[in-house]
Design a binder for these strands. Structure first.
Length: 557
RNA sequence: UGUCCGAUGGUGUAAUGGUAGCACAAAGGUUUCUGGCACCUUUUGUUGGGGUUCGAGUCCCUAUCGGACAACCA
């Protein structure tokens, strides 16, 4: 927010404004197809579409690009809206569907036919392919390319009336069979599909293709800047062609223009919607909102925050070349956000019992603990302390190396918010494993500081052994082990790179106040990691552990 | 193979033709009741070759490398 780098998309917009374009007339759009859940890559697009509009006081429409009934579902229409709202963007009353324009688009197709710029073609998809030819040499015209207009009109009407089977006919724009751009070789603009559409039901059995529908839908809505990813670059001439060859052009104050930017690639992350869908279908993951999924729903369940995602999108910038962003950058932005917000709690994962020799049996000492040292308004809480506590096994070493600040025989550490404690003796089982520590506390140090002002280097975390909650946790790690998931080797499947340890169940002992926190609350178990109470199960003792954004443990050896 | 697009440290990105900067990562240090956070420091860069210019990351040519496209998907 402070340094304000202007990306190239913003420069385009600013150049238009400089040329006299009224910022208030700028209109962008976010056009998802409701055939799956939104993922982090879409978040980038959302930030471009909604974010750019917001920056210049302009509008951004939400339009569902629902022109292929076979793949789409109302479930995703709802989920997508939820995710965009969660990110914090709004489309106000500008919620549209390409399917709203089916009648209008049909009319425009008729118009093209009447102008001799489109025709009904009988070629099968195989023949279509063959006639189109290959890059480098011209294709050959369809035998129907010069079918009389009246006949085209009649056939198109019959297509709409459902008189033909799927695949029998297709409507094609008459452009240029010799174009070096394959998309200009008489692209299909309407095909027959007898599937049930999630909104229009069985009203239609012909559906417009993307290239025909998209630009014209933009034009219908008065979109001025249409941002999309790089793979649509070759479609741009088509985007312009349909607008410029139909009557819609005359209705436009500003002709919409398409601009492309590079899509997001993240290390260890699968970004292909099709493959994510496969993971859901094959039950490799729970569902679209599995915490291991890069979907917004999954990230949300995993404890990611809207701010973290938006700041990340801001930080990665916008270019026209493909890159592979390190997952660490996303995690950094989450840590940044969570550091300010997450409530601190104490928990022990791998416990070792500590008995405090000089503490009264049966007594419970309630100590004050700060909820968030970075946010005073988060207040304090009481933590119980008694004769027997658990500490982390890693926080004790019988033969500590140099610069080990935690507990070892004879050493003194601070139990956070409690007492200074010294290890007196170590109890082992017959295998020589440490099972219990006998320690003493300095009763004068209640709260964590000794009256004589002596310093201890290490502060460790603990829970009361008889007054704690057993938290059932799912520890989530990266779903894939391969860095670049967009580049799968020949003969390999992307599922060959699944991480077998991406979801592990474990139990931890947490301080009792964890029970009182609502689902979805981000927690930082101090010096360990970030957690969130699972919003799916809503069980206060069911936690999601975000291992990939765990705090750095910089103690080596 | 044909057309189009692109190339700045390990990674992601900045730089009206005028000192190559920021962030992540890595390494070292200071501080600390979280070995976190914060703060400080360090390392590494304009793909190669030509040209234009007083001056090129930027403009031109060329080579190389990378990507997109050849769905009745979006």
């Amino acid at each position: 927010m402070s340094e304000e780098n202007t990306n190239f998309i913003e420069k385009i917009v600013e150049a238009d404004i400089a040329k006299g374009l009224d910022p208030k007339s700028i209109n962008t759009r976010f056009p998802p197809e409701p055939n799956g859940c939104l993922h982090i890559g879409h978040a980038k697009a959302i930030c471009v579409d909604f974010g750019t509009a917001l920056k210049y006081g302009a509008k951004c429409n939400l339009r569902f690009d629902d022109t292929n009934p076979t793949k789409e579902d109302t479930r995703f229409v709802n989920a997508i809206q939820e995710d965009i709202k969660w990110l914090g963007f709004t489309w106000d009353d500008r919620l549209f569907y390409a399917s709203d324009y089916f009648e209008r688009l049909y009319g425009l197709a008729v118009e093209l036919i009447k102008a001799g710029k489109a025709y009904v073609c009988r070629l099968s998809s195989e023949e279509f392919k063959e006639y189109r030819g290959v890059p480098g040499s011209a294709g050959k015209p369809s035998p129907d390319r010069d079918r009389p207009i009246a006949e085209n009109l009649e056939l198109f009407a019959k297509m709409r009336a459902g008189e033909f089977e799927e695949g029998k006919y297709v409507v094609r724009a008459k452009i240029d069979m010799a174009s070096p751009n394959m998309h200009m070789r008489d692209p299909a603009i309407y095909r027959i599909k007898k599937d049930h559409h999630h909104r229009t039901g069985d009203t239609w059995c012909i559906y417009p293709m993307y290239d025909f529908a998209h630009g014209l839908s933009d034009a219908i809505e008065g979109i001025t800047h249409s941002f999309c990813t790089l793979e649509f670059e070759v479609h741009r001439p088509l985007y312009d062609w349909f607008i410029e060859n139909t009557s819609i052009l005359q209705t436009l104050k500003i002709q919409p223009r398409q601009y492309e930017f590079a899509r997001l690639n993240l290390t260890y992350t699968m970004m292909s919607k099709r493959k994510l869908q496969q993971l859901v279908e094959e039950k490799v993951v729970e569902d679209w909102d599995d915490p291991r999924m890069p979907t917004l729903a999954g990230l949300r369940r995993r404890g990611y925050t809207p701010n973290a995602i938006k700041n990340f999108c801001e930080a990665i910038g916008l270019t026209k070349y493909n890159s592979l962003t390190e997952l660490e950058l996303l995690e950094y932005h989450l840590r940044q956000d969570l550091n300010k917000k997450a409530l601190r709690r104490m928990a022990v994962f791998n416990p070792i019992e500590v008995e405090i020799e000089n503490f009264e049996e049966g007594k419970i000492d309630w100590l004050d603990a700060i909820n968030n040292p970075e946010d005073e308004s988060a207040g304090t809480r009481k933590v119980p302390f008694s004769k027997r506590i658990y500490i982390e096994r890693d926080d004790f070493m019988e033969n500590p190396p140099n610069k080990y600040y935690r507990l070892s025989p004879g050493a003194e550490v601070r139990l956070r918010y409690a007492y200074l404690m010294t290890c007196k003796s170590v109890i082992k089982n017959e295998n020589g494993e440490v099972v219990k520590l006998i320690c003493t506390i300095d009763p004068q140090s209640r709260g964590g500081n000794a009256p004589d002002g002596r310093k201890v280097k290490g502060t460790i975390h603990w829970v009361d052994s008889s007054n704690c909650v057993q938290a059932v946790m799912k520890i989530y790690d990266k779903l894939f082990t391969k860095e670049d998931m967009s580049d799968i080797e020949e003969g390999k499947d992307f599922k060959d790179y699944l991480n077998p340890n991406s979801c592990l169940d474990t139990v931890a002992f947490a301080e009792p106040s964890v029970k009182e926190l609502p689902a979805g609350t981000p927690i930082q178990f101090e010096r360990v990691a970030y957690f969130v109470i699972d919003s799916k199960t809503s069980k206060p003792d069911a936690l999601v552990f975000n291992r990939t954004v765990a705090l750095k443990d910089s103690f080596k050896k």
